[in-house]
Simulated scan of single mutants.
Amino acid sequence: MKLPPALRAPELRLAFRVTVAGTAALAMARLFNLPQGFWAVITAIMVMQASIGGSLKAAVDRFAGTLSGAA
């Protein structure tokens, strides 16, 4: 059963946000000539959630995990 486009609007917005985030992460990784820039793209996709609050929480959790792992 195919949903009408109006009912898929939230999914389309999320797909657009994830695409923009992944593309921006790849551009930044190439700009700074990172040796393994694909991790920036993977992280950008992982932290994208359906809501901004969910994205921020995932980003903070990931940052805290990175800091604790570095320590």
Rank of each mutant, 00 (worst) to 15 (best):
M1P: 07
M1V: 07
K2C: 10
K2P: 12
L3C: 08
P5C: 02
P5E: 08
L7E: 12
L7M: 13
R8W: 07
P10Y: 04
E11K: 11
E11L: 15
E11F: 12
E11T: 11
L12P: 00
L12H: 00
R13I: 09
R13T: 04
L14Q: 09
L14I: 00
L14T: 04
A15D: 05
F16T: 11
F16A: 15
F16W: 11
R17G: 08
R17I: 01
R17A: 15
V18D: 11
V18N: 12
V18L: 15
T19E: 15
T19Q: 15
V20R: 14
V20H: 08
A21C: 08
A21D: 06
A21R: 02
G22F: 07
G22V: 06
T23V: 15
T23G: 12
T23F: 13
A24F: 12
A24H: 05
A25W: 05
A25Y: 01
A25R: 03
A25I: 03
L26N: 10
L26P: 01
L26D: 13
L26F: 11
A27H: 07
A27Y: 11
M28I: 10
M28D: 05
M28W: 13
A29M: 04
A29D: 00
A29C: 03
A29F: 03
R30A: 03
L31G: 04
L31T: 10
L31P: 00
F32N: 08
F32A: 12
F32P: 05
N33M: 09
N33T: 13
N33K: 10
L34I: 12
L34K: 15
P35I: 06
P35D: 10
P35F: 04
G37T: 01
G37F: 02
G37L: 05
F38W: 07
F38A: 06
W39S: 13
A40R: 06
A40F: 09
A40T: 04
V41H: 01
V41Q: 03
V41E: 04
V41I: 13
I42Y: 10
I42F: 14
I42P: 04
I42M: 14
T43L: 15
T43Q: 11
T43A: 10
A44T: 00
A44F: 03
I45C: 12
I45G: 14
I45P: 00
M46H: 14
V47K: 01
V47M: 10
V47P: 07
V47Q: 04
M48Y: 03
M48A: 12
A50G: 06
A50M: 09
A50P: 05
I52T: 14
I52P: 09
I52C: 04
G53D: 06
G53Y: 00
G54S: 00
G54Q: 05
G54K: 02
S55C: 10
S55V: 04
L56G: 02
K57A: 06
A58E: 05
A58M: 01
A59T: 03
A59E: 01
V60F: 07
V60I: 10
D61P: 07
R62V: 06
R62F: 13
R62H: 09
F63G: 06
F63R: 08
A64P: 06
A64V: 10
G65N: 00
G65C: 01
T66S: 11
L67P: 02
L67C: 09
L67F: 05
L67Y: 01
S68N: 04
G69K: 02
G69T: 09
A70F: 10
A70Q: 12
A70T: 05
A70Y: 05
A71D: 09
